[in-house]
Amino acid sequence: MTIPEHLLYTKEHEWVRIEDDIATIGITDHAQEALGDIVFVELPAKGRKVQAGEAFAVVESVKAVSDVYAPVAGEVVETNELLESEPEKINTDPYGEGWIARVRMSGDKVELLDEATYTTYLEE
């Protein structure tokens, strides 16, 4: 299982990459592995304003439906439309082609963990 060093993580198993005021969000390798084969992704609408901790996307595997929570507050500026035709990218490349959305941040964040803390959290 991979947990890249340069990303931040939530206790709900999202990852975040923050560049200036833009947060790129996806779900972690641990999350995709727990879910199994992902067959459907419901992306948030562009322009949607989200609160930190709000469910803003849905990932469905063969057997399970799982909410994805926005780790940061702000406005959805871009979504990964590739996932509509190839949702399995979340399984094969969760930190790359499997990214879900980009949010322009405006303030609030949930508690974000660095790689070491997230690794420890997973082990607990």
Binding site: G36, D37, V39, V62, K63
Partner: peptide
């Protein structure tokens, strides 16, 4: 067993 290592879809 709900699925094996290769996954339910496979």
């Amino acid at each position: 067993p709900v699925q094996y290592a290769s996954g339910a879809l496979r």
